[in-house]
Simulated scan of single mutants.
Amino acid sequence: MITEPHRLTRHCEVTAILVLYGLPRLLTGSILAHEMMHAWLRLKGYPNLSPEVEEGICQVLAHMWLESELYSGSANGGASSSSSAPPSSPTASSKKGKRSDFEKKFGEFFKHQIESDTSSAYGDGFRLGNQAVLKYGLKRTLDHILMTGSFPV
């Protein structure tokens, strides 16, 4: 019998993302952003990442989504702050209307939960990933993760 080395390749297919029904809109959106990042990493062929790197970058995306929801167009009371759109034109942020103070506080609470998480995978991973994204941008951080399996320093 002749044997030779054979490299196994793992093919991962994402077929669904499940989210509980009835959660608040901002929590649902942040969960979807987090889970969609997991799916994207699989579909783009990222190697087996440590929990800190994978959960960290997924938390970064959840946090970014929350920030985009809370601060998009907030400068002029919910209308778009885009200079290319006339003040009367409907935009993605103005279609939702002005966010209530309750919703803003709820969103800030969810952001704070991500920022202050004490677990190594979710909390420390988020802080390392967020620091990398703030310093290098999302694309360069993701490129570095693909090449090295770790966050850039």
Rank of each mutant, 00 (worst) to 15 (best):
Y122H: 05
H38S: 13
A79I: 08
L61R: 06
S83A: 13
E108S: 03
L23H: 04
I57R: 01
T148F: 04
A85F: 13
S119D: 10
D124C: 08
S94V: 03
P152L: 01
S89I: 12
S150L: 04
L43Y: 02
P47C: 06
Y71T: 11
I2P: 14
F109T: 12
I17S: 07
W65I: 05
L43H: 03
R25E: 14
Y46G: 08
E54H: 09
A79P: 06
K111W: 00
H6D: 07
K139L: 09
D143E: 14
V133K: 01
Y46I: 04
D143G: 04
L146E: 11
M1P: 11
L20C: 06
E69P: 03
D101R: 15
R127Q: 03
Y46M: 10
D124K: 03
T3D: 10
R140H: 13
A79V: 02
L142W: 02
L26F: 10
A16H: 12
L70Y: 00
T28D: 05
E35W: 07
S119A: 11
K98L: 15
L8R: 10
N76V: 08
S50I: 05
G45V: 11
K95L: 15
T91Q: 08
V60T: 02
P152M: 04
S74C: 14
F151V: 02
S120Y: 08
T3W: 11
P152G: 01
H34L: 00
P152V: 04
K104V: 12
F126C: 05
P24S: 02
S120K: 12
S119F: 08
F151S: 03
V53E: 02
R10P: 14
S80R: 03
T28H: 06
A92K: 10
S68E: 13
E54S: 06
N76Q: 09
E13Q: 15
T148I: 14
E69A: 00
L134I: 07
K111H: 01
S119E: 00
L142G: 01
K139E: 14
Q59F: 04
Y21C: 00
W65F: 00
S68G: 15
H11E: 15
D143Q: 12
E13I: 15
R7A: 09
G73S: 01
P51S: 07
P87Y: 08
V153M: 12
T28N: 01
Y136W: 12
E67H: 09
T3M: 10
M64L: 04
S100K: 09
P51I: 05
N130P: 08
L18N: 09
G73C: 01
E4D: 14
P24Q: 03
E13K: 13
R25F: 13
R7N: 06
E69G: 09
L142P: 01
K96Q: 13
V133L: 02
T15S: 13
P5T: 03
L128N: 01
H38Q: 11
S81V: 10
Q59R: 10
H11P: 11
I2H: 14
I31F: 10
K139N: 12
F102G: 06
S88E: 10
E67A: 06
V14N: 11
T91S: 07
G45E: 13
S74Y: 07
I145G: 00
